[in-house]
Design a protein around this nucleic acid. Structure first.
Lengths: 99, 99
DNA sequence: TGTACATTTGACACATCTTGTCAAGACAAA
DNA sequence: TTTGTCTTGACAAGATGTGTCAAATGTACA
């Protein structure tokens, strides 16, 4: 299952960019970039926009994956993750109609 | 749509407990309890267990609702919440089989 | 092997978010 | 007003997130 880190690493390699070069383009410290690509750190939302721009990736796809992983990190060690997701989903739908 | 706060306030009132009394039983500061019941603060997991014990509520139900609200707070102001939830769900299922 | 270059790791400081504590404010009933 | 209940806001301590840097590790090849 592809993680954001996997994708970003692949995209960088497809462009034949070294970490050093990509980190300059992205204005992200090389150490942080390394960690993001190995899923040791989560990118900030701002950094995510940078990736989309520099690598010309679809920001929507990236955002969804990024948020999905954020959610997952919240629930991976909890007891009833799927039921909790269902609750969250219902709340989203409910509050959409309410507006 | 019932929030944890709503439920906890109702349960306390059903038992004719004042905030002061409930906060003593629960060993939670009264100000915090007030805020939890009005959904201004989220209970900690430990406090949640306290509620279940003192009010004799099903801890599983409480946990699911609590986690669901936590997830929801993460996504309510994001652009593609439902798709992100789907991603998280797939990750949960995928990592379940992996173990 | 040694050297140059790329990547990873870990320690640190700084900022932001979370949590608990407390006192004062708001509100209702008598 | 007085009394009792609930709410609000300010604060401190702790936890978590983020960026920076230098040292350590890994890799290719002369």
């Amino acid at each position: 299952m592809d993680t954001i880190g996997d994708i970003l690493r692949t995209e960088r390699e497809n462009r034949n960019l070294l970490l050093r070069q990509a980190s300059a383009l992205l204005e992200i410290d090389q150490a942080i970039l390394s960690k993001i690509e190995r899923n040791e750190r989560k990118a900030t939302k701002e950094q995510l926009n940078g990736f989309a721009k520099v690598y010309e990736l679809d920001i929507e796809t990236l955002l969804i994956l990024w948020l999905g992983e954020k959610i997952y990190k919240n629930i991976e060690n909890e007891d009833f993750p799927l039921k909790a997701l269902k609750v969250a989903e219902e709340k989203v739908k409910y509050n959409k109609t309410k507006k």
